[in-house]
Amino acid sequence: MREASRISVGRWLTFMLLACVAVAFIAPLVWMVSTSIKPESQAASGAIRLLPDPASGAPSQAAANYSSVWNDRTVKFPLYLRNTLVVALLSVAGMTLSSAIVAFGLSRVRWRGRGVVFALVLTTMMVPFPVIMAPLYLVFKNIDDGMRAAGVLERAPWMQMLGTLKPLWLPAWFGGAFNIFLLRQFFMTIPRELDEAATIDGCSSWRTFWRVILPLSRPALAVVALFHFIYVWNDFVGPLIFLTNRDQFTLALGLQLYQSQAGNTPWNLLMAASTMVVAPLILLFLLAQRTFVQGVASEGLK
């Protein structure tokens, strides 16, 4: 009896502590949304309140703030959203497919040198992006120069790299070390008898990959796609380096432009813009909470 009540007191204390922590973690986002629906004068006043005063004015004030951000003349959020989605779509498709192909070669095909290549893949995960960011810019510049010298750009101007979104999504079509690793670990758990049976049935290894392994790996592919989508949505350094033309900016870059433009951006509008950038990700999380949690856990444990 005493034992049981002591345990439950401990549980309640733990709960209270964790509840406070949870509130502290979510408060910045609540405050972001709260600021975004206030008039400028109230956002800058010293009062701590969640809703504008009067609260009944919240919907119209929110509409005013958000439409002012969305329709800004110099910082074109609708365009940046489109650019971000283009990069995300092309990038996620390429990353998922190519990483799966490479992972298949590293798990279901037996060949000499496989271990060496796999070790190389793992090693490259340690290279920080800043190490290559400057020369990577020059790589794309050299590709452009080479194509110009060969007369390719004259005939096919769409192949131009710098000044377009290509540097942001093209590398994704060659696989990412981390995703290759993740998918390889998953492919290893699929019983070998399945592709042996497929081979006996006369399936080529490509067909085995396409018809047997990929359909069985949907959960792992979903994790890769989801996480790469978030990566692209969040990426700031890549666009900062490769995009010079404002009309090609992504949301992350656009948000920074919005904050740094001449004159002080009012806090209520800046928070409305931030909310627009954050909200889709949180929505995605609420829809696919399971995939997220399992994905994070499996990344950290393998």
Partner: peptide, 23 residues
């Protein structure tokens, strides 16, 4: 509680810079 603590990790760095500049 778990979701509340996890959600901030989804916030793009650039947006969290904005939010914390304000906070």
């Amino acid at each position: 509680i778990q979701a509340c603590i996890f959600i901030p990790t989804l916030v793009p760095l650039i947006a969290s810079a904005m939010v914390w500049m304000w906070l």
